[in-house]
Amino acid sequence: MTFRYDFAPTPFGDALAVFSDEGIVRFDLSESDDPSVPWLLESVSRQLHAVPEPDPGAADGLAALLEDYFDGEPVRFDERLTLDWRLATGFSRTALAAICTIEWGQTLSYGEVAVLAGHPGAARAVGTACRLTPFSIIVPVHRVVRSDGTPGHYGSHPERKRFLLDLESQA
């Protein structure tokens, strides 16, 4: 199995896109201003047990989808990209797959996603799956909100979650 990476532009800065022979394996809105910093690639390499090679242009298709998305088009990334789920297993994968069914402009609570994923009472586990998703934006974890309807966090960037929710509610 070979892994390769490229960067795709977002309003939050360039994001790391890692691909396997089977599809996109990780899309990371870095916590850093520079997603090319060595620690991020080292972290992905540890997860994959392999070092991705740079592949300029590999993210061009994803970049076009992101451009459509940020222009307000209701893109279903999971229907337009092949997702390689190797970094999401067990209940996390089940929860993330359930989150993919949340329609553009809609939200569900962590508890509602737990029910949808077949594990009522696993709201905290849904939160963990959202926090650890290997597919920022592609799997719309930003559409999962607190039971009182407030957005909650998005990693350490709640303003990004608000931006994404506002984008979808305006289109």
Rank of each mutant, 00 (worst) to 15 (best):
A58Q: 11
D60T: 15
D60I: 14
D60W: 13
D60H: 14
D60A: 15
L62N: 06
A63S: 12
A63R: 05
A63C: 09
A64V: 08
A64P: 06
L65I: 09
L65E: 11
L65C: 09
L65A: 13
L66W: 07
E67V: 04
E67Q: 05
E67W: 05
D68W: 00
D68Q: 01
D68T: 01
Y69R: 03
Y69S: 06
Y69I: 08
F70R: 02
D71R: 07
D71E: 12
G72W: 02
G72Q: 06
G72T: 02
E73Q: 10
P74L: 08
P74Y: 04
P74D: 09
P74S: 08
P74V: 06
V75T: 05
V75L: 09
V75C: 08
R76N: 10
F77K: 12
F77P: 09
F77Y: 14
F77N: 13
D78S: 14
E79S: 11
E79Y: 07
E79P: 01
R80D: 14
L81N: 15
L81E: 14
L81F: 10
L81T: 12
T82R: 13
L83G: 10
D84C: 07
D84A: 04
W85V: 01
W85N: 04
W85Y: 05
W85G: 05
W85L: 06
R86L: 08
L87D: 00
L87Y: 03
L87T: 00
L87N: 00
A88S: 11
A88E: 04
T89H: 01
T89C: 01
G90V: 07
S92V: 03
S92Y: 09
S92G: 10
R93G: 05
T94E: 12
T94W: 02
T94H: 10
A95C: 02
L96D: 02
A97I: 13
A98Y: 05
A98N: 14
A98T: 13
I99P: 00
I99V: 13
I99A: 03
I99E: 01
C100V: 09
C100F: 04
C100I: 08
C100Q: 09
C100W: 02
T101H: 01
T101L: 09
T101P: 01
I102E: 04
I102G: 07
I102R: 03
E103L: 07
E103C: 07
W104V: 08
W104S: 06
W104H: 12
W104G: 07
G105V: 03
G105T: 11
